[in-house]
Simulated scan of single mutants.
Amino acid sequence: MNAALPPLVQESGVPFDVFIQSLTEQLDKAQAAMALKARVAKLPLTFAVKDISLDLRAFVQMVDDDVYVRPAGPGDSEASTIRLALTTITRSMVEENAVDFKAEEPQFSLREALQGRMSDEDQRRLERIGVRTVEQLTELRKTAGADVVARLARMPVNRLQQALLNAAAPRVTQVEPAPPGGSAGARVHLQAPGLRAGRIPFVRAAGQDVPVVEAHDGRLVLAPHAMQLGVDAEIDFGDGEVAHVPLTQGRIGRWAGEAKAEGIA
């Protein structure tokens, strides 16, 4: 092992995903070079790499939930053999099977939505089963039982249930101020994963009803009076599900039990 390499690399090697990415990146460079050669030299026929097979002798170990590989040196008879077979896929195949990295509002990241109640370890456990966003966690709440998801993520059921509950709380995504001189008032937009199809929730703030302009697809648009802006609102979704959320940009709601425990209601 090269002594110029960092001590961690000398001892543990490199993360397996970094190794794969580096390998495929070099193959991409080779493909780009062949394409350039064909265009510049006007060759009617050239060569391409379709499949590659590698037998890599290496030591494999876990470092903080990551798989590391360290290539074996001369005389390392106890190293494992990793067989890699690389083949080609199209761009559409990559896009179809890749993670959707659609950006979320920073204030509504998974960590923020769970209000600091999720540890780094729990977040990694959810990511390992494909849950990276609030929307994905909310979808799990609708389609799978908490006990099943907890077994897959290897999380305690009570912590997962709390995470699912917090992720379903309403959150204010936008506050549109009333236009100057217009007849329309302000509009408050909320994401409301707890909203059931065909139901219009009952909303109150500052002792008065808050008009609901829209309620569909997990989203709410409210038309509060001027005195209700910034005030804590109570949203009754029905079936005993009541949440509290201040009508302020970027605020995340809490369910009634939590709100009372913190003196909000």
Rank of each mutant, 00 (worst) to 15 (best):
E139G: 03
L86D: 00
P246R: 15
M1Q: 14
L222G: 00
P15E: 08
D217W: 01
L247Q: 05
I235A: 06
S22D: 12
V40T: 15
A150H: 04
A4F: 05
L56W: 14
T173H: 02
L110F: 03
V40A: 09
R111M: 01
E78V: 02
Q191F: 00
A79H: 02
L54E: 11
P180K: 08
R132D: 01
G145W: 10
R57H: 13
G230K: 09
R57L: 07
L126G: 01
L54P: 02
E25A: 15
V203A: 13
K260T: 11
R204T: 15
Q162C: 13
A98Y: 00
A192W: 00
V242R: 14
R187Y: 10
R151K: 10
L140Y: 01
Q162N: 15
R117P: 04
R83M: 06
M155R: 04
D17I: 07
V131F: 05
I252P: 00
K37W: 06
G230P: 07
P156G: 11
Y68S: 04
G230R: 08
F16I: 14
A261N: 11
M93Q: 13
E105W: 06
Q228H: 13
V188M: 09
L84V: 11
G218T: 00
R159H: 10
V131M: 05
R159N: 10
I252Q: 01
T24F: 11
R70C: 09
F101P: 02
A206D: 14
P177I: 03
A256F: 08
L110C: 02
E258T: 13
A30I: 06
G75S: 06
E176K: 03
L8F: 05
L140H: 00
S109M: 10
P193V: 00
V242T: 14
P74W: 07
P224A: 05
R70Q: 10
I200L: 07
L229M: 13
V18C: 13
A205R: 01
R204I: 14
P71N: 11
V242K: 15
R196P: 03
S22F: 05
A259D: 05
A233T: 05
S12G: 03
R111H: 06
V131D: 00
P170T: 03
Q26R: 15
I129G: 08
T90S: 13
F47M: 12
D55G: 14
L137N: 02
F237V: 01
L54C: 08
M93H: 12
L160D: 00
D17E: 14
L137C: 10
E262K: 13
V157I: 14
V40I: 14
H244L: 10
G257H: 12
A261F: 09
E25I: 03
Q174C: 09
R39V: 08
L152K: 06
E104S: 06
Q249S: 13
A205L: 07
G250N: 12
A186M: 07
V221Q: 04
E241A: 14
T138F: 03
E121T: 10
V149M: 04
L195H: 03
D232C: 03
H189P: 01
G263T: 04
